[in-house]
């Protein structure tokens, strides 16, 4: 069991103008909403041509002090997480972007990685984060008339009503 939850901060390391951290040996860069697209462009030029995954995390109930973010990044409620792959160098790179609850939007990565289209729709569906310029901003998994965004932490799990047990209706 290792206790090195936070790998050494290494404040000097930067990549594409973003701070680099390591999480369990995996390389993570922290972009801001402003330089998100520019960072992705630099990553593509650096052979990270494939975006395998785009998802989000809602940190509503997560203690801010435990967030393990670099000192100059302030933790917000939402976080977009992209996983890029360089086929040439056989490397993975993760990109995390903080998104405030008050302004839950981010430019779409569709123009750079067309494969993020469905993933961004899923994030919109599940978290309510809007992607500016997305060609098809509709729900993807939930029914169109669904209220709320299920993977938000303030969305209750709900329960199945049980007959004869005095269960809440």
């Amino acid at each position: 069991m290792s206790d090195e939850v936070v790998d050494s901060p290494a404040p000097a390391e930067q990549l594409y103008g973003c701070v680099v951290t390591y999480s369990r040996g995996e390389k993570v860069i922290h972009a801001s909403r402003g330089n998100y697209i520019a960072t992705l462009k630099k990553a593509i030029d650096d052979s990270f041509t494939m975006c395998t995954d785009l998802t989000a995390v809602d940190f509503l109930t997560y203690a801010l002090t435990n967030r393990q973010l670099p000192s100059d990044i302030s933790g917000e409620r939402f976080e977009i997480v992209l996983n890029l792959i360089s086929l040439e160098r056989r490397e993975r790179l993760r990109l995390r972007v903080q998104i405030a609850e008050s302004e839950a939007t981010i430019p779409t990565a569709f123009d750079l990685f067309p494969g993020t289209e469905a993933m961004e729709r899923e994030v919109f569906d599940m978290f309510g984060i809007e992607f500016e310029g997305h060609p098809d901003p509709s729900r993807i998994l939930m029914p169109e008339d669904w209220e709320g965004h299920p993977l938000r932490k303030d969305f209750s799990v709900g329960r199945i009503p049980v007959q004869f047990k005095g269960a809440p209706s």
Binding site: V5, R24, T52, Q68, V81, N83, R92
Partner: peptide, 20 residues
């Protein structure tokens, strides 16, 4: 499980299956 975040991807019959 200690705090942190991790992504692992392996080759499933259909392609890369990843767990974040």
């Amino acid at each position: 499980v200690p705090e942190g975040e991790v992504y692992v991807g392996i080759e499933s019959p259909r392609g890369e299956i990843g767990c974040y």
